[in-house]
């Protein structure tokens, strides 16, 4: 009797764990089925090479490039801002700051990642853009620079926290060796600690990139809704995610081509983030073995 009960419990726990597999299968199936439907109507060559994305107009073009360039541009700005700042924070906290300071500041920094993204969108549109416009005349009220910078603020803690963990995990004996040789804290940080923690730091950066690519509300609010193949940070662009939001807000018929476009856009996004996540998972596994 007791054995049976244990078995039933174990099986239901297993079932719960298997739900996570079902979610992944669900995502892949939903995206691919709708995307296949989409590509039966639009050629995949056009999708990849057409420089225009105008599915909501009468002259329809289905080139993903403008959305992709919008996504990459905003993400690039965010990463270019967040990586140097986040990395500097992690090195400062791990190698310079007193322990008590580190303990108080880390949760405060993590608060930056807890702020809902719709709130950051408001910040970008209402505060950062007007501020930047006073330096850059002619800057549009929707632009990728302000959206990217604010996204950068949001992902700072992803980089600083995870990198700090990685630096902290480097055995103290290496720190002692470096100081014993007469290194300054800066030399210890960049010549010994950062190389020793490099895999953890790379993982944190990849996760931050993946987060930036998938971020939706900040760009939907502050970067605009004009798909445009450009790398000019002062003009409106549209990201993949912002396009999905734009379509979802409208009244689109379920079996229409417009409806299918959001799945085609979605699968593009999914492929990118999936690749990044897989790479970071691989590195993380290797890294764990190194210190065990």
């Amino acid at each position: 009797m007791r054995k049976l009960k244990e078995l039933v419990i174990e099986r239901s726990l297993l079932l719960s764990a298997l739900i996570t597999i079902a979610v992944t299968v669900g995502i892949v199936l939903v995206l691919s089925i709708e995307a296949v439907n989409f590509f039966s109507e639009v050629s995949i060559i056009d999708f990849i090479t057409d420089p225009e994305w105008t599915p909501l107009f009468s002259d329809k073009h289905f080139g993903i490039l403008p959305l992709l360039s919008g996504t990459l541009l905003t993400s690039f700005i965010a990463i270019a801002f967040a990586v140097p700042v986040g990395l500097s924070i992690s090195i400062y906290l791990s190698e310079y700051a007193p322990k008590s300071f580190r303990r108080t500041i880390k949760p405060l920094l993590e608060l930056l990642a807890a702020v809902p993204t719709v709130v950051y969108g408001f910040f970008a549109l209402m505060v950062v853009t007007p501020f930047l416009q006073s330096f850059i005349p002619g800057m549009s009220s929707f632009n990728s620079l302000s959206a990217g910078l604010v996204m950068g603020i949001m992902i700072i803690p992803y980089i600083s926290s995870l990198s700090e963990d990685a630096l902290h995990a480097v055995p103290n004996s290496l720190r002692e060796a470096a100081y014993g040789m007469g290194s300054t804290r800066l030399q210890n940080s960049f010549r010994v600690m950062v190389p020793a923690a490099s895999s953890g730091i790379i993982v944190s950066i990849i996760l931050a990139i993946s987060r930036a690519i998938g971020e939706t509300m900040i760009v939907a609010i502050a970067a605009g809704q004009q798909p445009r193949l450009t790398f000019d940070p002062t003009v409106p662009v549209e990201t993949i995610t912002a396009y999905i939001v734009q379509v979802s807000l409208g009244d689109v018929q379920h079996d229409s081509l417009e409806y299918k476009t959001i799945f085609a856009a979605g699968i593009t996004l999914f492929v990118f983030t999936f690749l990044l996540n897989t790479i970071s998972y691989r590195i993380r596994k290797k890294f764990q073995e190194k210190y065990e």
Partner: peptide
């Protein structure tokens, strides 16, 4: 191993993708 890799991957899927999943599976 599969479960572990899978969960780590799910944690990195952008939230809007979950929206697409919900739209197709739950809503429709």
């Amino acid at each position: 191993t599969i479960l572990e890799v899978n969960i780590s991957n799910l944690a990195g899927v952008p939230s809007i993708i979950y929206g697409l999943l919900g739209l197709e599976v739950f809503v429709r």
